[in-house]
Amino acid sequence: MTTTQMTLADAELPKVRVDILPLLIVPVLALLMLPLVGSFPTWVTLTVAGLAMGMMVFMMASGLTLIFGLMDVLNFGHGAFVSVGAFTGTLVLLPMKNWVEADSVLMNLSVVGLAIVLAMVVTGLLGWAFERIIIRPVYGLHLKQILITMGGMIVAEQLIHVIWGAEQIPLPLPETFRGAFIIGDAALEKYRLIAVCVGLTVFITMFLVLNRTKVGLLIRAGVENGEMVEALGYRIRRLFVGVFMAGSALAGLGGVMWGLYKETLTAAIGGEMTVLVFIVIIIGGLGSVGGCFIGAMLVALVANYAGFLAPKLALVSDILLMVTILLWRPQGLYPVAKR
């Protein structure tokens, strides 16, 4: 018995490897840009704008990356959930016009909150149906998955046209969300600050769920080895469905936030984001929520700084960023361990 303890326990204590380099990129990038941008107020405005956009992209991308990590399914139609979310939001925001136009923070917040809840419920349910009807027959078949989810996206976009008509829908921001706070010389748009808050809330909630709850641990375990999760006695199918619904609902949330940001809706609003969302999850490492968060911030910040410093470069800044990151880490910032 004693030998056991000797040999087995006295092995050198492994260092806990916390990979902080990717975490540092965002602040370092922001600081580096300060002298280049030149003016501090402009820099603050650009940075906040970048963070706000990044948060919204994160809402759309986090679900996609989690679904991919757990189920090995890449939903090319994820953008459709963003669109559906945004359009569902209008079902609340347009009829309750007086609440939107009211000069009351409380009324504005509650009407947007209601729109978000409805959008998330609808996209969540849609996700459930999508998983059952579209995805389930093609688990493990990547080629068919790509084709079928692409087809699902085309159908969904067209159905939005059928239901809401082919015209653009104006979606004005609530009264009290308009304008900006002026701090010193820096103008901070209110809605961007709201987006940052919502995005952070989503991120922290996801972080807590994934690290502190049994379901979260199971999801992380399932990302690495779904078979073992089953062998421990858990039905991974239920996790799949749950995560797919949650991911779709998050896309719906992102849709409402993004729609309000753009203030007009077209059926392609989500589809247009697909490329950006893909770049973000590739940069982050397919399947990694933390990587996705950093990726979203990076892409959005780089786009904003580039747009200011070199507008022509901004057109391809996200691709260049992706290539740079992949040259540094071919699997993305936080590669996900797979069995």
Binding site: L74, F76, H142, I146, I282, V316, D318, I319, M322
Partner: peptide, 16 residues
């Protein structure tokens, strides 16, 4: 890398 990765990369490059 895998089929999915290729699809995503080509989508990004083509859109750029």
């Amino acid at each position: 890398v895998r089929a999915i990765f290729y699809a995503m990369i080509t989508l990004a490059v083509a859109s750029a």
